[in-house]
């Protein structure tokens, strides 16, 4: 029997999580055949693309047949997904031969942990620099944020791959980048060292400076804190982290950091991080002569 899943009009991960919980529970109920119906899609965002990509891979890895229907490439959201290389990766070919990655995106990619830092340095940073006009040297904090993110995601997963997709909005000088994996997730890792009731609180705890689940003996709880501080203070951005049934959003309100927690609005297998930065808010370092004082 085919389990038909009608994808929501707004194709973003937060709209997909409740659907996943309804259809598959916490992925303990995997049918033999799932068909995703794209016919209702009105608007696609990077988080939806990344999440469905990961979900498709996860279902197939677990023996489920995954098919798609309602694919009309003349419709904008389907064309966007075709240009993002979604269908090339999951159906073996693009819907239209003319589809190709847009200059404003870094297309959907499944990336191994061993390749991540090379991808950041050789693809993401040069592309963002060319798109935004910000010299690569001034993107050092962002580059480190991305590496910290991947280093930490690696600590919360048993798989050696994750997915990433980036979208540049030139009018707003804004980058939206989504990174996700299908590992055990942040809450489970946090609970190996502390008893914390909700998934959202566990995610929040993982961003505290000095907190570490000691997945590696040298971890000292600095990476996620650095990510949060720099995205909010130096990159004019915000951060949304989904894992299990928890969501935590970090944003800046005036001079202070604001944290919003949400629990139980669906289920996110593994970890998904949505990160936005504003390149017009990056301050250039004009006086650095390479010297260092302790």
């Amino acid at each position: 029997m085919v389990c038909r899943v009608i994808l929501p009009r707004q194709f973003r991960a937060p709209e997909l999580f409740p659907q996943v919980q309804r259809e598959f529970g916490r992925l303990e109920r995997i049918p033999n055949h799932v068909q995703f119906d794209f016919s209702q899609l009105q608007f696609a965002r990077p988080s939806g693309v990344v999440f469905l990509s990961n979900l498709t891979r996860y279902l197939r890895r677990n023996g489920c047949r995954v098919t798609y229907c309602g694919l009309d490439p003349s419709r904008d959201p389907i064309a966007y997904m075709d240009d993002s290389l979604f269908f090339e990766q999951h159906c073996g070919r693009r819907l239209l031969d003319s589809s190709q990655p847009r200059p404003t995106t870094r297309p959907l990619m499944e990336i191994r942990h061993t390749e991540v830092h090379g991808w950041i340095g050789f693809q993401l940073i040069p592309w963002l620099s060319a798109s935004s006009g910000v010299p690569e040297t001034e993107l050092a904090e962002f580059r480190t944020c991305m590496s910290e993110l991947f280093n930490n995601i690696q600590d919360h997963t048993e798989y050696d791959v994750g997915s990433v997709f980036a979208q540049w909005y030139p009018q707003e000088h804004k980058l939206e980048i989504v990174v996700a994996d299908f590992g055990s997730g942040i809450p489970r890792t946090v609970r190996t060292v502390e008893a914390i009731d909700s998934d959202a609180n566990a995610i929040l705890r993982s961003f505290d400076e000095g907190f570490s689940a000691k997945s590696r003996p040298t971890n000292r709880g600095a990476g996620l804190h650095y990510l949060r501080q720099n995205v909010l203070d130096n990159l004019g951005g915000n951060l949304r982290v989904h894992s299990g049934s928890g969501v935590v959003r970090f944003e800046k309100n005036g001079n202070s950091h604001q944290v919003k927690l949400c629990e139980g609005s669906g289920f996110c297998p593994g970890t998904m991080v949505e990160l936005e930065i504003r390149t017009d808010r990056i301050e250039f370092d004009e006086v650095n002569d390479g010297s260092f004082e302790w």
Partner: peptide, 15 residues
């Protein structure tokens, strides 16, 4: 070297 991560600094210098 364009940047360093906390993992690098922990192992190279904090140690």
């Amino acid at each position: 070297i364009p940047n360093v991560t906390s993992s690098f600094v922990n192992c190279a210098f904090v140690a």
